Computed example of a mutant assay.
Amino acid sequence: MSQRKKQIRQKFRDAVFHRDNFTCRTCGFFSAPESAENELDAHHITDRNEMPNGGYVAENGISLCAPCHEKAEAFHRGEPIPPGFTPADLYALIGSSEDEARAASERLGE
């Protein structure tokens, strides 16, 4: 992985974790800033392969603990989605939408 790609991914994670106050937005699990990298995931709500420039924007990310991340990934795997874990539900939790995320992601390429 290129150094630039690593920086983009780290900036994405940092922005999502800070916005969400190092807290899983679905269950409320809190992680301290120094342990968030190991205890939380910055989940891409819309798959990064479906977004311009990879969707590495806070408008497309949400902090999730491991069990909640597994539930959110059900959508990407084409499995039944647990209540509260559809992309629309996750966007609502962070005050964003797929359209907002797509627009922000398009600006990454500028």
Score class of each variant (00 low, 15 high):
residue 87 P to R: 14
residue 13 R to Q: 08
residue 42 A to W: 01
residue 100 E to H: 11
residue 32 A to R: 14
residue 43 H to R: 04
residue 19 R to H: 05
residue 22 F to N: 05
residue 105 S to I: 14
residue 10 Q to A: 13
residue 63 S to L: 07
residue 98 E to A: 09
residue 23 T to I: 01
residue 5 K to E: 08
residue 12 F to I: 04
residue 102 R to K: 14
residue 94 I to V: 14
residue 22 F to R: 01
residue 48 R to D: 12
residue 107 R to F: 08
residue 91 Y to D: 13
residue 39 E to Y: 03
residue 102 R to C: 11
residue 89 D to R: 09
residue 83 P to I: 15
residue 108 L to I: 11
residue 85 F to G: 03
residue 89 D to E: 09
residue 102 R to L: 15
residue 65 C to R: 04
residue 71 K to S: 12
residue 43 H to D: 10
residue 9 R to C: 00
residue 78 G to I: 15
residue 20 D to L: 02
residue 99 D to A: 15
residue 14 D to H: 05
residue 79 E to G: 00
residue 100 E to S: 14
residue 82 P to Q: 15
residue 9 R to P: 00
residue 95 G to A: 06
residue 6 K to R: 08
residue 38 N to V: 02
residue 98 E to S: 07
residue 44 H to Q: 12
residue 95 G to T: 10
residue 79 E to M: 07
residue 20 D to E: 14
residue 53 N to E: 15
residue 3 Q to P: 01
residue 108 L to N: 07
residue 94 I to R: 09
residue 30 F to R: 13
residue 47 D to M: 10
residue 25 R to H: 00
residue 70 E to C: 00
residue 80 P to I: 13
residue 21 N to D: 12
residue 85 F to I: 06
residue 70 E to R: 09
residue 101 A to H: 12
residue 41 D to E: 14
residue 52 P to W: 12
residue 101 A to R: 13
residue 76 H to P: 06
residue 82 P to Y: 13
residue 7 Q to F: 10
residue 39 E to I: 04
residue 75 F to K: 07
residue 77 R to P: 00
residue 28 G to F: 03
residue 24 C to F: 05
residue 70 E to H: 08
residue 95 G to D: 13
residue 91 Y to I: 11
residue 106 E to D: 11
residue 105 S to R: 08
residue 30 F to N: 12
residue 40 L to K: 04
residue 34 E to L: 10
residue 35 S to N: 11
residue 33 P to Y: 10
residue 96 S to G: 06
residue 64 L to Q: 09
residue 86 T to F: 10
residue 73 E to A: 06
residue 83 P to N: 11
residue 53 N to P: 02
residue 106 E to S: 06
residue 73 E to P: 00
residue 73 E to F: 02
residue 3 Q to I: 13
residue 60 N to R: 03
residue 100 E to L: 15
residue 101 A to W: 14
residue 98 E to V: 12
residue 73 E to G: 01
residue 70 E to N: 04
residue 61 G to C: 05
residue 23 T to C: 02
residue 32 A to D: 05
residue 65 C to I: 02
residue 54 G to T: 04
residue 41 D to K: 04
residue 38 N to R: 04
residue 80 P to E: 15
residue 28 G to L: 11
residue 5 K to L: 05
residue 88 A to T: 14
residue 62 I to G: 02
residue 24 C to H: 02
residue 34 E to H: 07
residue 108 L to S: 06
residue 42 A to F: 01
residue 64 L to Y: 08
residue 33 P to L: 14
residue 44 H to M: 11
residue 9 R to V: 01
residue 90 L to E: 13
residue 92 A to P: 00
residue 73 E to S: 05
residue 88 A to H: 07
residue 86 T to E: 13
residue 61 G to N: 05
residue 2 S to P: 02
residue 85 F to K: 05
residue 5 K to S: 01
residue 16 V to C: 08
residue 93 L to A: 06
residue 67 P to H: 12
residue 16 V to E: 02
residue 27 C to H: 07
residue 72 A to W: 02
residue 6 K to Y: 04
residue 18 H to M: 13
residue 89 D to N: 08
residue 61 G to S: 05
residue 85 F to V: 04
residue 22 F to A: 03
residue 31 S to Q: 04
residue 108 L to Y: 08
residue 10 Q to S: 12
residue 59 E to G: 02
residue 22 F to H: 04
residue 74 A to P: 00
residue 80 P to D: 15
residue 38 N to D: 09
residue 32 A to S: 03
residue 106 E to F: 15
